[in-house]
């Protein structure tokens, strides 16, 4: 099985804040944190390497100040990286001209902001249609498209409201609708739900999962909330002090955290709800029969099936072919560890 092509590749990207960053980078190709602070520079992004594959949700997770926003702004080149390389569909973004960047951002990228960034003087429709207006698309077609997007995010009936007349959750739906209006290939979301209270946040996450199941975009999603990352991610990169400390699928992070820092996040997560059957199964001997479970199910979903006295379950892939065996002892072992 070949993995989908990477849509966005980020190689050795650095972003240093402070005066003389460029010269410093030229003389110190790989500065340590100590060297940086001695030079009075802030290493907001340090030597980050990432591949974001087409159609996946790639989550960047880290505590406040760990450099997530800076990284995502480097990826869209809202901030100029100090050094490194960013390839979008194979094209080097850092070499693109101003005009080319405008072109790419207008048609291929969308972004959702933490504090919504809605224009206060425009109605919901006008806000959603704004990216199209900037492209010079005529009023009727852009408003028709905007209305579709508003319906998609479930805000029909609020088209003529102004942002301040909406709740936080509704405002962020407008932000989402706006970023989708141009049908971007690559969708950046910078802590889109962090400004919302927990119940609404949950609801918006569900909404987001629903949207993605329809849209199948390539997504870079920023969050500081590990639970949110686990819920949404195909793959996660965890950042600390500007560097990526580990990246992988939720299973990999939960089952084998690379550092204590990552382990700290995963400790309070119920592993059974995260880890997929496929990660825990053993190779199946010939002639394994009995109850079958899909390889993509979580261990928590598989657990009740052992209640009928089975010691082993047959794991099958989407096509129904046997992929492995899931043993009761492994499941119990993992559940005991929390």
């Amino acid at each position: 099985m070949s993995l989908p092509q990477p849509k966005l590749i980020c190689r050795n990207v650095w972003k240093l804040f402070g005066s003389g960053a460029q010269e410093f980078m030229a003389s110190h190709p790989a500065p340590t944190l100590e060297e940086l602070s001695a030079a009075g520079l802030v290493g907001a992004v340090r030597d980050v390497n990432l591949d974001v594959r087409a159609g996946e949700i790639f989550v960047i997770m880290g505590l406040s100040g760990s450099g997530k926003s800076t990284l995502v702004r480097c990826l869209s080149r809202l901030i100029e990286p100090t050094s490194g390389e960013i390839l979008f569909n194979g094209e080097n973004l850092l070499a693109a001209s101003e005009a080319r960047m405008i072109e790419i951002r207008r048609h291929q990228m969308g972004m959702v902001f933490q504090n919504f960034a809605l224009l206060p003087h425009m109605t919901v429709v006008a806000n959603v249609a704004f990216p199209l207006e900037v492209q010079g698309i005529d009023r009727t077609s852009r408003e028709a498209r905007a209305r579709q997007m508003i319906e998609l995010v479930g805000l029909s009936g609020k088209e003529d409201f102004f942002p301040r007349q909406l709740s936080g959750g509704q405002q962020q739906r407008v932000g989402i609708a706006r970023s989708l209006a141009v049908e971007p290939e690559l969708w950046f979301l910078d802590e889109p739900f962090s400004a919302l209270d927990p119940l609404i946040r949950r609801e918006m996450q569900d909404e987001f999962i629903r949207l993605q199941s329809v849209l199948k975009k390539t997504i870079v999603f920023i969050t500081h909330d590990f639970d949110e990352a686990i819920r949404l991610a195909d793959r996660i990169a965890i950042m600390k002090d500007g560097a990526v400390v580990q990246s992988g699928t939720p299973d990999e992070l939960v089952l084998s955290p690379a550092t204590d820092y990552v382990a700290e996040f995963t400790r309070n997560v119920s592993k059974a709800k995260v880890v997929k059957v496929a990660s825990l199964m053993k190779p199946a001997g010939a002639g394994l029969n009995g109850i079958a479970i899909n390889a993509k199910a979580t261990v928590a979903e598989a657990a009740p099936l052992f209640a009928e006295g089975n010691d082993v379950l047959r794991v099958q892939d989407d096509a129904g072919k046997t992929a492995g065996a899931l043993y009761r002892s492994d499941v119990v072992d993992m559940m005991m560890r929390g």
Partner: peptide, 9 residues
């Protein structure tokens, strides 16, 4: 950022 992201001149 929004303005730049949607490709404003």
């Amino acid at each position: 950022d929004l303005g730049r992201m949607i490709g404003c001149t």
